[in-house]
Design a protein around this nucleic acid. Sequence first.
DNA 1: GGCAATATTGCATTGCTATGCAAAAAAGGT
DNA 2: ACCTTTTTTGCATAGCAATGCAATATTGCC
Lengths: 330, 330
Amino acid sequence: MDVARLAGVSQSAVSRTFTEGASVSPKTRAKVMKAADELGYGPSIIPRIMLTHRSSLIAIVSGGLYNPFYASVVEALAQAIQKSGSNVMFFSVNHGEYIDEIIPDILGYRVDGIISALSIVSPEAAERCAKMHTPVVLFNNKLSNEWVASICSDNVEGGRQIASLFLKRGGKRFAYIGGKKGNLASEDRFAGYLAGLMREGVTDVAVTYGDFRHDEGYEAARKLLAAKRPPDAIFCANDLMALGAMEAAKAAGLRIPEDVLIAGFDDIPAASWPSFDLTTIRQDGDAMIRRAMDLLSKMIDGEQLAGNSLHLIAAPLVERGSTARAVPAG
Amino acid sequence: MDVARLAGVSQSAVSRTFTEGASVSPKTRAKVMKAADELGYGPSIIPRIMLTHRSSLIAIVSGGLYNPFYASVVEALAQAIQKSGSNVMFFSVNHGEYIDEIIPDILGYRVDGIISALSIVSPEAAERCAKMHTPVVLFNNKLSNEWVASICSDNVEGGRQIASLFLKRGGKRFAYIGGKKGNLASEDRFAGYLAGLMREGVTDVAVTYGDFRHDEGYEAARKLLAAKRPPDAIFCANDLMALGAMEAAKAAGLRIPEDVLIAGFDDIPAASWPSFDLTTIRQDGDAMIRRAMDLLSKMIDGEQLAGNSLHLIAAPLVERGSTARAVPAG
DNA sequence: GGCAATATTGCATTGCTATGCAAAAAAGGT
DNA sequence: ACCTTTTTTGCATAGCAATGCAATATTGCC
């Protein structure tokens, strides 16, 4: 190697200079450092990966960063990973897409683990990872095997809580604005909402979809509110759409919460801005990340998961002004 | 190798099976594939990196994803990189921090290039990268050498435009809410703003700082507006703070734009939501990304940059309701 | 069938760092 | 100065895929 030659020492000496706690004399280290500085050399971790079969790489698979919830989860995850001494590979995928095509890419880098924040993993892809003993943690998913764990907000319970709240606040005509059709989180939130409403005898819930985006939430709400018998309580699959729905309600001349109750899911920062003051279900991103890192590091250390590893994270109701209607007399 | 043994072929045959266009008989390929499937084998790109000195990795260094502008830039960048056949390493840093400490980490992975979205790179760190011939592209920075290019929105001109607009709309008492003190983008925007105002004889501009965050923008504006002689025109270093400032103005019972003009910078989606309708300067993220990818791929292909490589990207004014005051008589 | 042309396969090597082991050097003790 | 103990150093090797080259197998054609 160039540095070794320039410093007049062996390659081992160079390696030891850059290895914490290795046996090198200060003199040698100095010579090596000088040569390294001169050549702009720094050690490569690539051969280490080959030898140790540990890349110190964690893959984050995500997308939809227009949603502040995901953006902050990705950032906090990255920080947690870096703090743990690993580094992050980021794979961008679109909402709801299967990530099967990029799995070979990911595994090709011999990442130590994979955290998928929103994409769908097929059972075959999961099997593939399991065979390579590459642990996987999924957010808001329910798949699991010995190398795949899932961490899920309690979406059903969240939906149920919104239902109770709407009923308590005098909601009469209910609507739901979902994310993508078939999206697990969206469907679970709806399931809980519907169950909560049905328990009180409500049978009719207007359902539309809005792809999780603000503008689609606006549009969906606009249509709902323009109906002959418009809803007076709208639950949205996420906050971004709920904010859009609030805009639509205001544009239609409706007052919130007097004329229409609105609630979302996530508790993004904008939900608490005074202009919105949106009631929502808080997804505890920090708890999800803690749990994910914990599971991942255990699996990386060789600990297989016992059977069904599905972790439900509590998602508490955060009531704000958008549902603060006084209980009506009737 | 296990797969080769199981398939009863040589290691070369396995390699060729997974190499597009290599010479393998269908029979051999089938045997290899069967064995690979059985063992869950997929080729590693790690040895390839050692041989070719190309990792197909691009490092994105960023942070502050709470700002939708950065979140969307990071996501779009990642997509552009993946489309170009490379993959993304993501390094999270805090706003305004020097990234010098993580540069060795980044270079250790032998990334093909680095794109830094908001962190500051010291000249020494830049030199370090240059010595390894690792190209670097910086966003909203002005450093450059033969391996470092900078891509910068025209922040000064943006500030100037806001100044003209405020003057045209009858602003009398001006304020600026900056990001972090010393932040280049924030300072440049202020410099342009100040220059534009001074050209018309304005000498007095109230300046505070808000760390680029919504809540800090709120707080900064609240204080400004509570002063004895409150401003009637506030320019904020980014949209997030401008939205906070709007909230503060509303909370103080002021009408926008009648009582106070407010403008931001970035043109994040929320700026165009009806509740805000915020005048702003649009940062053309797509153009910045296109330029970045273009420069990066040229440098990766060995093309050194000619001298000063500082690229200014036009940042047009987007006027909306928050400055739509009719020209006052006086 | 026999020969040339083509296709397929295996061997051996490359790339760079970490590390066990043995050799060499330095330090410590009397 | 000599021997023991400790520290430092270099050698050699492993890890895995890609590839030039030579060897072998297959095909095509008369």
